[in-house]
Design a protein around this nucleic acid. Structure first.
Lengths: 259, 259
DNA sequence: TTTATTGTTACTTTAGGGGTAACAAATGTT
DNA sequence: AACATTTGTTACCCCTAAAGTAACAATAAA
């Protein structure tokens, strides 16, 4: 039998906490609706010697029902119930863990001025956190419409409550986004997309300065994305200056004298 | 340092998918708010040689932020975010698994007449399922107020739509429950709480007959609970007869002649 | 009685995670 | 500059859970 037991499903069940054999056997019994150990073995290729133990475990967990006899028959409990139970247990566990973690922070937020974030999720998460904290002014640079679009909703919301300056390297590529953009000078564009340090080429994709005191920049080095959070007001001011100078002359005066 | 890292928390995080060392290190960094590898090592007792790899993994997963340097510093991402992410991924996984499981049932419900359930959860789950399917008549026997109470809500609801007969072995012990009970004869009580088969003593705790065609009985054998589901109309009729005979005479006639 | 099937047991193998020791590289100290 | 300390890495061992294998008793079927 090569019924092949959707390996994706097996992997999902493993991630829900079953062992590989448990997953296979449960899927087998669900497929067969009602089956003997041998039938499950033939469908799943789990060694017959192992089946019995696994079936016992699953029955004890409440995922299977049993009809004693020779051979013994097994029947799967409705997947909705089973997955639901697993989910509930997991959620409880998550809630408990979160409570316990929140009790840990004895010390005051020793907030350090520079941090580097390596995961995609972490980067976006942190950007949202910063956007959520903006009070008055926000300056955004982006060279990637796709990346910027991720935060469209947040930015739209902020537009109502604070001054936003959106700077991009090519107006053309951003025209589908519902914002008013300013363009950088050609020199800056060339510069920013071609920074090489120690043989590694950096590509600045995104940059935010929030209220002139907190910044996060996203760049890719090689094929890896990375973000740097900087909270030093001085650094941010310098960076802000750079962006000021980098805007096309026509935009500079009318907008930035108010700062 | 014997700060002892709440072992319950470590276990919870393990159940959420971290390894033991990952859990310890994450908790360590959350506790310290911002720390070097060595500090984490000293707080958690995870071998220093292992710390670096673990920290890297956690950073890549987005649970930590990094400040490069010598020594490198690490900072924990807000637990709410981290646990939230883990939870979301798990839920997605559960949903996907459920969809895939639901696609499996090629065959018609080969529903067999006799099944045995070994897990506490499975038993209660199945009882609720049966209660949910009752159309006209329900007969319940119980010798355990605690167990019966579990289904108080479901029974209250059913009272409105169908005939319910609740039979108990000692009225006294059930008087706190908001139902009208009937009592079994003393002989039956003695009989039911003292069945010995092959040297094992069985204790019938609970029994339901739904619409005269489906029954589930819960008994404990030794210190294990077990339930048997029977869907044979004949067997159920016999069982119903037994219960009819078992009621105190005063109750029998006025209620059961209508059946 | 023979044969096949069911269920059990004992053993091997493998992989992942954890622990230890030793070393190179970077930093600090005299 | 020489030395000591700390940081970060590597290689190795150990243990365990889980998977795979093989052989055997108990039961049912022929």
């Amino acid at each position: 039998m090569f019924s092949q037991l959707n390996p994706q499903l097996i992997r999902n069940l493993e991630r829900l906490g079953l062992t590989e054999n448990e997953a296979k056997v449960y899927v087998g019994v669900v497929s067969l609706r009602e089956a003997t150990a041998r039938e499950v073995h033939e469908l799943t290729n789990v060694p017959r010697a192992k089946i019995y133990e696994v079936l016992k475990v699953l029955a004890k967990k409440g995922y299977l029902e049993v009809r004693q006899g020779s051979p013994t028959y097994f029947r799967a409990v409705d997947p909705k119930q089973v997955i639901g139970k697993i989910k509930d247990e997991f959620i409880n566990c998550a809630i408990e863990a979160l409570d316990q973690l929140n009790e840990l922070s004895y010390e005051l937020p020793k907030t350090s001025p520079v941090w580097c974030i390596q995961s995609e999720w972490g980067i976006k998460n942190r950007i949202r956190e910063i956007l959520g904290g903006v009070k008055e002014e926000l300056i955004v640079f982006s060279s990637s419409p796709e990346f910027l679009q991720e935060f469209e909703a947040e930015l739209k919301k902020l537009e109502k409550t604070c001054r936003i300056t959106l700077i991009v390297n090519e107006l053309e590529r951003f025209k589908l986004l519902p914002f008013e953009f300013r363009e950088t000078t050609k020199e800056f564009t060339d510069f920013i997309t071609n920074i090489v340090i120690d043989g590694i080429r950096y590509d600045e994709e995104f940059f935010i300065i929030a209220d002139g005191k907190e910044s996060i920049g996203v760049h890719s080095a090689g094929n890896k994305r990375e973000a740097v959070v900087i909270k030093l007001p001085v650094v941010c001011y310098m960076q802000k200056m750079i962006y000021d100078r980098v805007l096309e002359p026509s935009f500079i005066k009318k907008d930035l004298k108010s700062v």
